[in-house]
Every structure is written in C-alpha cells, then in structure tokens.
Nucleic acid binder design. Structure first.
Length: 423
DNA sequence: TCTGGGGTCCTAGGACCC
DNA sequence: TCTGGGGTCCTAGGACCC
C-alpha cells in the first residue's frame, strides 16, 4: 500500500501555550526564552515578522524588544509538556498509526483511508483548537519530507486554511521551486551553503541533482532526503519510538560558582532526573559521564572537563549513579574556576530484561530500594518532578535556573489553576 | 630498492533535528 | 552583565588481528 503521511505541527507552540492561558497576548508580539532566560526559543508571528531569529541571545534583541513592546516569557516546560500530551491524545484518535516526533509535531498515517484528506485534516485541526486552544497546521504527502514541505506551504499560505495536501499535486514542481534548499527537512546550514555553491538553490533544483554526487557529499541521509522529495518514501514511520541510547541531563546555572558542593548538588539533581527517565523506559545503564564547565564565552578562565565512570553492574538506581557521578566530579573538578554548567549522560543502556546477574546474583540494589525508587517516580509523575527527591539534590539551589518571567503551572499544580471570576 | 590485504572494533567529529 | 537542552545518525581514521 502506498503510504500517505500527514504532519501535524503546532503553530509557535510555546507562544500558543502561553496565549491559551492569557488571551490578551493574542495579536501581540511574544517571545519565549530558553532556560536561564538566555535565548529566543519561540516567537509569535508578529516577532517573526520583525526578523528576530530563533536561538538569538535576548540581550542582543533589547532594542527591538523595547521598540515594539515585545512580551517576554521564561520557558515553562511543565506547562508545555502537559499541553503537548493533550494535543497528542486528540491527534491519536484520528489515525491508526501515529509517530510523536517532537513536543509539538506528530506524523499521522493516512494510508489506505478512504477519506477526503483535506476535509479530514481540517476537522482534526478544528477539534484540536476547540479542545486545547492550540492552533495546528497539517501538511500531507507521500513521504515524511514531502509532508514537511506541504506543512511549510500551508503555514505561509493563509488561503489554505491550515491544511495542504501535496500528494500527486499537478503543480508540485512549482511548489518545490518555492522552497529554499535550506528549508528542506534534513538540510541544515552547512549543506545549504554547500548546495548553493553548487548552484542548487531550491527543493526543485535538489530533486534534479545526481544521486551519486549527493550521497558522496551528504552521506546516505542526504540521498534519502533527495528520494523522499521525489516522492519515494525512505525514512521509516516509527509507531513506537525505540528506547533511548543515551540520556542526558544538563543545565546551565543561574549564577557562577566555584564551590564543589554546589556542583555536587547540581549533579545529584541532574542524575536523579536522568535515572528517572532511564527507569521510565525500563532500562539500565553501565556508564555515567560527568561534565562540568565554565562559561565558554569569555576570553580567560575557561575550563571544560568530562569523564566516564563505569558501573560494576548495569543499574538504574539513583543512589548508585549519584555516587558514581561524585567520583567523576572528584576527577574533573579544578578549583579556582567559575562554573556555569554541569551535566550527566547515561550510556551503554540495555533493557532491564536483558540483565543477567552474575554467578553470585550480584546486584547493587536491594529489592526494597528499587521499590522505594518506583514509589518516588510515581509521586513525581503524578504531582511534578520535585515532589519527592534525594536529599543530596539539595534544597537551597543557589545554582538554580534564572526564570524571572515564568507563568504559573496552570494545568499541573492545584495552587496554580486559573481562577474564573464572575463579573 | 623492497615493506600485503582484508576484516573488525572503537572513537572523534561532524552533520542534522526540535 | 546576559549566549538552551536533548537527541540521532554517519563517516573517517586508527588500532589491532590474522
């Protein structure tokens, strides 16, 4: 059966989430900032029109912010994750197979469905909007890459009312000619430069490139992108995402610190978060990598250190992993530096079921301890990440994030529920 | 002067995505 | 003053082996 794939993409997702809970933001220029209020990670259409690029440090945009009264928000991932869950569960009802691609995007299989795809997609869109307040755009095509292209066209053409089906479209070449090569999914900054130097400026030009040449310059992935644009699906549809091969937890601090104890607190906190994700996917890891660094943007006093610590047996025990992280820290820590960031990465991940205890039945953790961890996970899943945590993660958090423009946790904390006032 | 060929494994680095 | 966090995949090159 020929695949037909729809890509549903939430418009300006983080900004839209903020707008759901404060409709006064509608029509106003809004920016959502990264952790520590550092960079622009989401922009309303009004801000995009002003030419503010994604990823720009906000202090470099101060003039525009002042001039156009742009409203700034710290990122509120708890809220966005919860809104994402609501959107995804609605999308899921409209297809036998869905691939959650990111927090704000999902591929839906429409293969073999006898429907008017455009009408059907409009209905999906309206239901999501009505139930969650989030606006969604849907692009449809015979491959993921063409669904992405169709989505882009739908976003920039308001007369399409949020849905575009490029499958077997008679003017497909005209549309591909309107897509800049750097806007193709899978073609980033580097390849975009390289292709343009070789006279390939649009998606249409790219479809006419030589297969061997493309593979040589852009690896097998580039060739897959090329074929997908020609309508030949190469990137598989992944109904159930494979377990993660590495789990990272790292964050910049709100302040600089030289103190090893602050780094220990931070690492304990990040390790707990990573171990939680590890247990959630029912896996164990054999290696924890630890890294710490100063700001990399200054001229002097820079330092970055990282090291791997191997566990005696695979584990997902927060306590064991935290002790290993501390060992790693002892080896990479240098006094006299102003640290800005730390992190851990869990690797060599295997499923819990694959673990063979050795001849003596060695495990690092008693059954009691594992039960305690699962109980903590359940609490944290239900009531928020910091409900139950190890004392080692600290309670002062001098190094914690700066989030000066944070909105309330409208949907996930009772005390932050929005209040409806009678007039 | 001459100094094989092929396989595997590992790592670092580079590209991409949101 | 202020510069995110979390992932994936591919390739080249070196080490090592027979």
């Amino acid at each position: 059966m020929r695949p037909i794939i729809a890509l549903a993409d939430c418009n300006n997702f983080y900004v839209s989430c903020e707008r759901v809970f404060d409709p006064r933001l509608e029509g106003k220029p809004v920016i959502v900032l990264s952790n520590n209020d550092g960079c622009v990670v989401a922009r309303s259409n009004e801000v995009k029109a002003l030419g503010v690029p994604l990823g720009k440090p906000i202090f470099e945009c101060q003039d525009l912010v002042d001039k156009h009264h742009i409203l700034l928000f710290s990122s509120n991932y708890t809220l966005y994750a919860d809104m994402s869950q609501r959107v995804m569960s609605i999308l899921d009802e409209y297809t036998p197979e869905m691939e959650r691609y990111s927090i704000d995007e999902a591929f839906l299989s429409l293969s073999g469905m006898s429907i008017d795809r455009t009408e059907y997609s409009r209905e999906i869109r309206e239901t999501v909007k009505r139930s969650t307040g989030i606006p969604v755009t849907i692009g449809i095509g015979p491959s993921k890459t063409l669904a992405k292209v169709a989505n882009k066209i739908a976003k920039r053409t308001s007369s399409l009312r949020g849905v575009f089906d490029i499958t077997d479209h008679p003017k497909i070449e005209d549309y591909l000619a309107q897509i800049e090569v750097g806007d193709i999914w899978g073609v980033g900054y580097r390849y975009s430069e390289m292709l343009q130097e070789n006279g390939i400026k649009t998606a249409l030009d790219f479809t006419r490139a030589d297969d061997i040449w493309v593979q040589k310059r852009m690896t097998i992935r580039g060739l897959m992108t090329l074929k997908e644009l020609r309508g030949e699906p190469c990137i598989p549809f992944e109904d159930a995402p494979p377990p993660k091969k590495g789990i990272i937890s790292s964050k910049g601090f709100g302040i600089e610190t030289e103190r090893k104890d602050d780094l220990k607190e931070a690492l304990a906190d990040y390790t707990a978060q990573a171990a939680f994700k590890l247990r959630r996917q029912k896996s164990l890891c054999s290696v924890i990598q630890v890294f710490i660094q100063t700001s990399m943007f200054k001229a002097q006093g820079k330092y970055a250190g990282g090291i791997s610590v191997r566990l005696p047996v695979p584990t997902s025990d927060t306590g064991v992993l935290t002790q290993a992280a501390y060992q790693g820290l002892e080896r990479v820590y240098r006094s006299g530096y102003a640290y800005r960031k730390a992190g851990v990465m869990l690797t060599e991940i295997i499923p819990e079921s694959a673990f063979q205890p050795d001849l003596f039945g060695t495990t690092l953790s008693s059954e009691k301890k594992i039960n305690l961890l699962h109980a903590m996970d359940a609490l944290n899943t239900r009531f928020g990440r910091k409900t139950a945590q190890m004392v080692a993660a600290g309670t002062l958090k001098l190094w914690g994030m700066r989030r000066s423009k944070l909105t309330p946790r409208y949907t996930t904390a009772w005390e932050d529920l929005p209040v409806a006032k009678a007039c």
